[in-house]
């Protein structure tokens, strides 16, 4: 069976974000970009399914500027077979990404689509669920364990109260948590091999999708900063302050 994995190029999670002075957005000049951490887990899971003989081909898709090719190359070096870049200079919001993915699913007919549970830039946590809705497929979100067997997937999901396990009929969409696996580092030979793997480039128009944003960002601001407080010298002083100054215990 074929698996489709969506990978997004995002500002690295270690970068200290700066909001632009004019409030128009976040400053992304000269900052490090990487693959969204959740998507690394998505790629890793697909590669493991392939290694286990359950998957025959892994197609990775990234959408955005031409630099998203780098993110696709990273996935190819981890073990994916080929890539699709949906090239767009415009802002792609989750509904548009889901529609573009649905159009690719119509072309590629995978049995499983694996996405990250959330992109760490927009923190939306929507695309997988939206894609499942558009396709009329079941969804296994926030997965920390995935077992694919025959025409079914058993997904253990991280929920507020603990864990939940559901059975889904394939084809299905899975959104993954970081705890699903430990993504591998690509080896040098595999990075070299990845350079020869094919990447197809498409535009939203090629896919017949209206990708216009539904939300307009009016402004982006710094959150309220907390003031650092005081250091206390002892546990006794701490308890005294909590009781008599802060009055919280």
């Amino acid at each position: 069976m074929k698996v489709l994995v969506a990978v997004k190029r995002v500002v690295d999670y270690n970068v200290k974000i700066r909001v632009k002075a004019d409030g128009s957005g976040v400053d992304t000049t000269n900052v490090k970009f990487t693959m969204n951490p959740f998507d690394e887990s998505a790629v890793e899971e697909a590669v493991r399914l392939k290694e286990a003989g359950k998957v025959s081909e892994i197609v990775v898709v990234s959408m955005g500027t031409a630099q998203s090719q780098e993110t696709i190359r990273t996935a190819l070096a981890m073990g994916a077979d080929r890539g699709i870049l949906v090239a767009s200079e415009a802002e792609l919001q989750p509904l548009a990404v889901a529609k573009l993915l649905a159009a690719i699913v119509a072309k590629e007919a995978p049995s499983l689509v694996i996405v990250g549970k959330q992109a760490i830039d927009d923190d939306s946590n929507q695309t997988g669920q939206m894609l499942a809705a558009l396709l009329g497929w079941p969804q296994g979100t926030f997965a920390s364990k995935l077992v694919v067997d025959g025409g079914k997937a058993e997904v253990t999901r991280e929920i507020d109260g603990g864990l939940e396990t559901v059975a889904l009929t394939l084809p299905a969409v899975i959104s993954v948590d970081l705890r699903l696996n430990e993504p591998r580092y690509a080896s040098l030979p595999n990075i070299m091999k990845a350079k020869k793997k094919p990447i197809e480039t498409l535009s939203p128009a090629d896919l017949g999708v209206d990708d216009a944003p539904r939300l307009v960002t009016l402004k982006v601001e710094e959150p309220q900063r907390r003031q650092a407080g005081v250091k206390v010298a002892s546990v006794a002083e701490l308890v005294n302050k909590l009781k008599n100054e802060a009055k919280v215990i």
């Binding site: 200290k16 976040v26 982006v220």
Partner: peptide, 9 residues
């Protein structure tokens, strides 16, 4: 957005 390091309107 960005883990709460920015607030978008």
């Amino acid at each position: 957005i960005y883990a709460g390091n920015a607030m978008a309107t």
